[in-house]
Write a protein that binds this DNA or RNA. Sequence first.
DNA 1: CACTTGACCTGTCCGC
DNA 2: TGCGGACAGGTCAAGT
Length: 319
Amino acid sequence: MPELPEVETIKLGLSKLLVGHTIKDVSFDTSKSLPNALEEVRRFLIGAKVLEVKRRAKVLLIELSSKYSLVIHLKMTGQLVFIGYADEAKSKKQKAKSADDVHFGAGHPNESLIGKLPDKSTRVVFELEDQSVKGLTFHKKAWLYFNDQRKFGWMRLIPTAEVPNIDFIKKLGPEPLEADFTVKDFRERLLHRPKSNIKAVLLDQTVIAGVGNIYADESLWGAKIHPTTLVKDISTVKLNKLYEELQFVLKLSIEKGGSTDRNYVDAEGKKGSYMSFARVFRREGQPCPRCGITIIKTRVAGPGTHLCPNCQKITGVKP
DNA sequence: CACTTGACCTGTCCGC
DNA sequence: TGCGGACAGGTCAAGT
């Protein structure tokens, strides 16, 4: 499930790979995947050049020369995978492979498959061309796949100037890794919801943007806070610690290319390695790396929640 | 207001 | 081996 570090990793990848490409064509499985009118897609998507790739919370923003942006939420199982060829020779070599070898990260099948789906989870295929390299007798071709097994993800073509006014974007809280987001801001935002449990508040995108189940559990373990503790019952010292721990796990995960819990991959189709650094997430039954007591899994605010029952004690009042 | 539940989907895993 | 059900959890809407 792509959270802030996973979406950031994809953003970094697409910034290198995708920017500068022109979108030559697009195909999608159902209108649900790209619900804009076809007329709009033809005018503002096809023929447009990718200028920049940005991230806000768990949302990717691909800014186009048509002054439209592709706004993409990957939700639980979404992937954005870029496949490109460095030159024509390599392209020919790849084409020689049998169709059975075709899968993400292993090169694109061949042009004749464009418009068909290279994977049953593929919802949208972008056909790309890089015309920026002068003096070549051919243009570099590439493809961008939007895959989404569970179809919860979405993609919209929206005028770039309108993006900040999208309801979902407008309601988002601050970015936890922005330089101007201080520990004081963090405490104040959390304390807007004094009677809620801390895990639910961390997951609330209108309080802090970008945190999901993995990094909520990991940061609460780091700060030794039980996930059901009410925000008003957490001491300032512990809230300060939580701020540090949240930034620590988010930054560490970006460094490790994100967490591949199930099917997350980056823009090149590669898995992230944060899961091997995780202290509690998906480690129920294993010893806590701090005290050795067995980590348990329970349910808080909906999702599965992992914690150390020894390090993260339930407290009713501020210590 | 705080919280829970259900809906949206499909692939995987577990117990029988 | 097959089969039903639980589970994965981001977000929104509706209900308690």
